[in-house]
Simulated scan of single mutants.
Amino acid sequence: MSSNKTNSDDLIFKNLFYGSFWVLIFAPLIVALMQYFFVGYIVDFNDPDSWEDIVKTYNFPIELTKILGGITAMLGLLYRSRQTSTQILKSQQQLDLSIRAEEIKRDEFQLELVKSGFEDVFDTLKDKNNSRVKWIKAAKILLHTLEIEKHIKTDIGIKDYKFYKERLRIQLYEALQLETSPGVFQSLPAQFFYGVENWQDADLTLEQAAIQAHPVSDVQCEDINKILPDPIVTALLPESVTTIFDFLEGYDPEMNELLSEVEYRDGDYMSAHGFKQGPAKYIHHRRKFKVLNGEIHVRDNNN
């Protein structure tokens, strides 16, 4: 729209300039010829002494030429100035397009890293393992991947990043909980994070899990012919646990706003067919009734 207006304005100045130029050429000439036709007898071109009266006699066309010349020169400068401005604007637009194309290309590369990083985090933890090494690995990858956000510049890139981030949060939310019954989840027990294999044992106390996670190391003498084993610690690094669950706890308000924008309407369940029958009846019932103290009550308009 702006480009079309600029081109239209340039065309107007161009027409004004060329129109003024031709007026400059012909208008004084026509006026001078008309004046010569009517009062040309005043000046005798054969008498050199009368030539000094030419300026006085033809003063009007001469002054008209000066005025039109000034106007034409001004319009020419304006036209040239607008041409220069238009060229600068087009150059800036091309530069902006080039920069944006480079940003999009760079964001695509960054998003590939984000996608790969988030997938690695999920693949590492999706089997509910309580390996100290794997949790440290997942936490480090997650932190590095989250840092990529600051390098994403385009709006579409930021939107895609938030999508990948929210998807990982949902995946980990399901993976790092116990499904006690279909659709019902509860937190992993504290014993899980001590890294012991029998963390699901109902009789295992936290004290017992802590002792198992930090076994007593045998004192061994240094022997050049043997490699001494490192102390075995299975308890998860608290920083790695904090990293993962802080990520789960956080949420993006914009993602919640996406659902809040959905119109929660009471459809005509009587006319619903096929796969829409159940949802339509549920929405109708949910809008009409509420449960209070284990009893069904009809909702009022304000509740």
Rank of each mutant, 00 (worst) to 15 (best):
V43E: 06
L248I: 15
L33E: 01
S217V: 15
V31W: 01
A73G: 15
I211V: 15
L33C: 13
L168A: 05
G195V: 10
E52Y: 02
L89S: 06
I283D: 12
Q171L: 15
L248V: 06
I62W: 01
M270C: 04
D230Y: 06
H144Y: 05
G117C: 08
F163C: 04
I224T: 06
I136R: 00
D53N: 09
S81W: 08
L68N: 07
E261Y: 07
D53Y: 08
S50I: 06
I88K: 00
S181L: 14
L125M: 04
I88C: 03
K126N: 09
S50F: 03
K153M: 07
Q212D: 13
N303M: 11
E119Y: 06
V298Y: 03
I99E: 08
L68G: 03
G267C: 08
V39A: 11
G195C: 08
Q200F: 03
F122T: 04
I25S: 03
T180A: 12
S240E: 07
E149Y: 10
S260R: 13
T145K: 01
N293Q: 12
D230P: 04
G117T: 09
S217K: 13
R299M: 13
Q35D: 07
F193D: 00
Q110I: 12
K115D: 13
I158H: 08
L111F: 01
Q208V: 09
L78A: 14
L188M: 09
L237T: 12
K281N: 10
K140S: 14
L236G: 01
Y194K: 09
